[in-house]
Simulated scan of single mutants.
Amino acid sequence: MLERTWRPRGPVDVLATLSVHQRGPSDPAFQIDARGRVWRTCRPGGDPATVCIARAAGGEVTATAWGPGAAAALDAVPRWLGAEDDVAGFAPEHPVLAEAFHRFPGTVIGRTGLVMEALVAAILEQKVTGTEAYRGWMRLLRKFGEPAPGPTPARMRVIPPADLWAKIPSWDYHQAGVGPQRSRTIVTAGRHVAQLEATVGLGSAEADRRLRAIPGIGVWTSAEVRQRVFGDADAVSVGDYGLPHAVAYALTGSRRGSDELMLELLEPYRGHRHRACVLLLRAGATPPRRGPRAPVRDYRGM
Score class of each variant (00 low, 15 high):
residue 257 G to T: 01
residue 228 R to V: 13
residue 128 V to D: 03
residue 248 A to S: 14
residue 40 R to V: 12
residue 94 H to G: 02
residue 278 V to S: 10
residue 29 A to T: 15
residue 68 P to R: 00
residue 207 A to E: 00
residue 28 P to K: 03
residue 129 T to F: 06
residue 24 G to Y: 04
residue 214 I to L: 04
residue 116 M to A: 05
residue 264 E to H: 12
residue 83 A to C: 11
residue 92 P to I: 11
residue 302 M to T: 06
residue 2 L to K: 12
residue 14 V to C: 06
residue 91 A to I: 01
residue 95 P to T: 00
residue 171 W to Y: 13
residue 145 G to D: 08
residue 225 V to F: 03
residue 283 A to I: 11
residue 3 E to C: 09
residue 257 G to D: 05
residue 209 R to Y: 09
residue 3 E to D: 15
residue 140 L to E: 10
residue 101 F to W: 11
residue 250 A to M: 06
residue 200 V to F: 12
residue 59 G to C: 10
residue 274 H to N: 08
residue 39 W to N: 09
residue 156 M to A: 01
residue 22 Q to H: 12
residue 160 P to C: 07
residue 60 E to H: 09
residue 14 V to P: 06
residue 247 V to G: 10
residue 180 P to W: 15
residue 288 P to M: 13
residue 153 P to H: 02
residue 187 V to K: 05
residue 90 F to Q: 05
residue 115 V to G: 00
residue 44 P to F: 08
residue 174 H to N: 08
residue 85 D to F: 08
residue 37 R to E: 14
residue 283 A to D: 00
residue 39 W to Y: 06
residue 119 L to G: 00
residue 65 A to T: 11
residue 168 I to T: 07
residue 223 A to R: 07
residue 139 R to W: 09
residue 112 T to D: 01
residue 136 G to C: 06
residue 16 A to W: 11
residue 11 P to N: 10
residue 280 L to G: 07
residue 270 R to W: 05
residue 104 F to W: 14
residue 193 V to H: 13
residue 44 P to C: 08
residue 283 A to M: 03
residue 276 A to E: 10
residue 38 V to R: 10
residue 186 I to A: 11
residue 90 F to C: 05
residue 284 G to T: 03
residue 62 T to K: 13
residue 237 S to H: 09
residue 251 L to V: 03
residue 293 R to I: 03
residue 29 A to I: 04
residue 177 G to E: 08
residue 113 G to D: 14
residue 21 H to D: 09
residue 230 F to L: 13
residue 21 H to L: 15
residue 275 R to E: 00
residue 205 A to P: 05
residue 112 T to G: 01
residue 143 K to P: 04
residue 284 G to P: 04
residue 151 P to N: 04
residue 281 L to T: 09
residue 15 L to A: 12
residue 215 P to K: 10
residue 262 M to C: 09
residue 60 E to Y: 10
residue 142 R to I: 02
residue 251 L to W: 11
residue 122 A to C: 13
residue 73 A to M: 12
residue 108 V to T: 02
residue 163 D to N: 14
residue 23 R to H: 04
residue 76 A to Y: 00
residue 172 D to Q: 12
residue 6 W to N: 07
residue 264 E to R: 15
residue 296 V to A: 10
residue 53 I to A: 08
residue 114 L to G: 06
residue 81 L to W: 10
residue 52 C to G: 01
residue 299 Y to G: 07
residue 66 W to L: 09
residue 185 T to E: 02
